[in-house]
Design a protein around this nucleic acid. Sequence first.
DNA 1: GTCTATAACTAGATAGAC
DNA 2: GTCTATCTAGTTATAGAC
Lengths: 205, 205
Amino acid sequence: MSAALVATAPERAASARILRAATALFRARGYHGSSMRTLARGLRMEPASLYYHFPSKQDILFAILDRTLDDLLDGLRHAVTAADDDRARLLAAVRFHVLFHVRRRQEAFLSHSELRSLTPANLRRVLAKRDEYEHVVRGLLATGVRAGGFQVADVKLTAMAILTMCTGVATWFSEGGRLAPESIADRYVEMILRSVDRRAKGLRS
Amino acid sequence: MSAALVATAPERAASARILRAATALFRARGYHGSSMRTLARGLRMEPASLYYHFPSKQDILFAILDRTLDDLLDGLRHAVTAADDDRARLLAAVRFHVLFHVRRRQEAFLSHSELRSLTPANLRRVLAKRDEYEHVVRGLLATGVRAGGFQVADVKLTAMAILTMCTGVATWFSEGGRLAPESIADRYVEMILRSVDRRAKGLRS
DNA sequence: GTCTATAACTAGATAGAC
DNA sequence: GTCTATCTAGTTATAGAC
């Protein structure tokens, strides 16, 4: 690491600690329902100390959402690249999306629920990344439809349906639950592949 | 209506007006992000006047969510009763759920996003109604599985997947969009029936 | 039913010591 | 890097006039 970097390693660790605590707090009470005082108390520091690491509460929210979207996009691209046909690519995308929304469900939840708490400029930056993500998923469906493996009435609508269904896992998954993340991902993959498979055509009444 | 009722007709109309404005405001900025001042300003009244109609901001939120859950449950029961086989009942339930989440998307959105802003006692009452709703949907799936028309790996998980997928419509639907509410409902019904239909069994790789 | 006025408190953020 | 102390503004809610 270059000496020219502004942030030292301990500073990054402290920032990461703040972001982790803020993620849990915002998830539990919402951005506007969480105060800098409450956040500081959970970290056993004074509110003023937070402002050494972040210039404002808004910057904390943006940092959480921006990093989450980056990781989501990177993860999706990685998962899709590793697969080698339309069906496998959709399977990998769904599986990744579900597992990400289970394993990082607090941040993932915030990425949807707290978009409205971002300033207009920050919202634009986050939405641009979210649009990019949706674009990749729509591409997977469209490619499969053109190749003939998928039968989908409306690619855009189906993409939204798939994403919101998988994203929803972040709202109801609980650690001590009946199903393991991998089992949930498997079931979701199965349901989604059945609903887009060309061979299922004509089954509807 | 009996003279013994506490609320007169004009009082109910004024309360309804407040609830409508509060629904839009809470949806746009969140419960904690919305102040009684802002709500009053939108209604061209002073903040103090709101307290003639509702004892607190919390009571406004609870009134919105409680009524929404009542209407949701009533609507589902009505839709399901009108249908006369397993497939038609699931179709009617999905169709109703999607259309409700389009037509009353602000309240429907709040019923999920602002649960955390309810006091523990109010949360219990709302969750009891939500659980009842989910129970009905799980029952539709379980009956179809027993009768042999549906093939579902996990009834509880599938019910959550279906509900969160349809509920998601409230987050992205826009009035001027490409698709009419009925078209969206039709596509969703199609996707869901394909994914639970017994005849689609074995299609997955 | 709606108002003015205000009580009691909490918010985000900053200054400057150490 | 974290602290104490504090500023300014906004918050929910109430009292009491009309």
